[in-house]
Design a protein around this nucleic acid. Structure first.
Lengths: 242, 242
DNA sequence: CGAACCTTTGATGGCACTCAATACAGGTGG
DNA sequence: CCACCTGTATTGAGTGCCATCAAAGGTTCG
């Protein structure tokens, strides 16, 4: 009771939008106290962008950073001949951007509608220098992203097309909030088939074929090409090859 | 002249083996002053292991960390049915291990003969807490590994077998010291064909075929299956698909 | 309703995998 | 030093999976 009371007292000093923020206690914001958040809050901007909006062009100068409040952001790499690979998906409350580097190695684009808190480069970098706990959170997120990238390397390098598609559906089910009123394993795919293909290193036709196959086997259910229900989770886990 | 003199004075206090260490100024050690290195040095051990030696079993409890002084270490992930993917290669003076986690998500194994400095978990973690510059170096390495992992995801997901093999040779040429007395683009492959195949998501036969093909096209030269000379770098760059 | 876009389904072909056999390198013992 | 042996690498033939090309079916806008 005591500590809860204390926490509530301190929260009175928070910026208004932090108090109602979905990501208040997760991500890097969770490392900060009320006064630090208040300081961070002075430089902050809030954006809401439509699907497809480019957020960070690849190899562009780093202008600022952002924290994802809701939605899905895809990180992309482009080959000179136009081939594209999606190298990561980021969800709330992930930190977006590349600290301590003058240019980003990947491009970032809103996959769904995305709400962001943006902050200028100078604000973040000075606070990182001042508060080691903030850098610690950034480090932890980088390590987590590294684990995810390596997991996906396993999928890209070793798995068959069917296993890739199943792995992708499981990945989404772990990150996307289930749709309200529905089954807990029912969610909205935030990516087009083309995005999925770029993520899996397949073609849209192959992705479509394997999704259809899973549907026919009653492992998943698909409504209007976007709303997925996992009907038989054990079978899907099996299809993903663990 | 002044600063050089100063640096030499301070270096007198270094642990003996740090003074002659190839990695003294790179990696995380470069962030530390003489007295900090001396303290780190008290807990340190030096190992020299043969190719194939397991260094960190996957999913094992984290016992300690290491710094690579020379050689190549491969990071591996295993699928339940035995398929293996090499998710990263590490070279001197990389830091090896997974801070702030109870178990490593990947296995590590010496690919060539490897010389290491090992340090216990407690030493590193207490020093990280004390010296933010140390954590900063660790963070930078994690970001660099993340960039490399994402580069490789592009290769695994989008490139053809021939492009993968060429990309791999270029990757090695950037990291392996050239053999003494030879052409500057001549080096010793520290991996077997089986390792290369696991890294590229191919079979050993396919790897072998494409290496032979590059040899017949006079793009590279191969002696005794291990010693590679890049004869025509522009052609190799072209074969890698940028 | 109609148009544009995305997705699904079908037919075909090529690249990489599989299986199999040979060639080579390094190490050991005669 | 050479014959032998083991593990690794190369080369060949055949198959299968996924990409490609093509067309039809759905979905979501104005």
């Amino acid at each position: 009771v005591f500590s809860l009371q204390g926490a509530m007292d301190r929260d009175v000093d928070l910026p208004v939008f932090c108090r109602v923020c979905e990501a208040r206690h997760g991500g890097i914001c969770g490392a900060l106290g009320a006064d630090q958040l208040a300081r961070l809050g002075r430089g902050i901007g809030r954006r809401e962008v439509a699907p497809g909006t480019p957020l960070v062009p690849a190899h562009a100068a780093v202008e600022g950073y952002a924290i994802i409040r809701s939605g899905v952001v895809k990180l992309t790499k482009l080959l000179s001949d136009g081939r594209q690979q999606i190298v990561g998906l980021q969800f709330a409350p992930d930190f977006l951007g590349r600290p301590f580097s003058d240019c980003s190695a990947v491009g970032a684009e809103a996959a769904s509608a995305v709400r962001l808190c943006t902050l200028p480069r100078s604000t973040l970098e000075s606070m990182v220098r001042e508060f080691p706990a903030l850098q610690h959170r950034l480090y932890r997120q980088a390590l987590r992203e590294l684990d995810e990238a390596r997991d996906w390397m396993m999928t890209l390098g070793q798995k068959s097309a069917g296993e890739k598609v199943a792995s992708f559906l499981l990945l989404l089910s772990r990150h996307i909030d289930p749709l309200t009123g529905g089954h807990s394993l029912r969610f909205d795919i935030p990516l087009t088939r083309s995005n999925i293909a770029d993520f899996l290193g397949l073609t849209i036709e192959t992705v479509s074929r394997h999704i259809s196959s899973l549907r026919k086997l009653k492992v998943i259910d698909v409504e209007r090409n976007r709303y997925i229900t996992i009907v038989d989770l054990p079978a899907l886990l099996d299809a993903a090859g663990s």
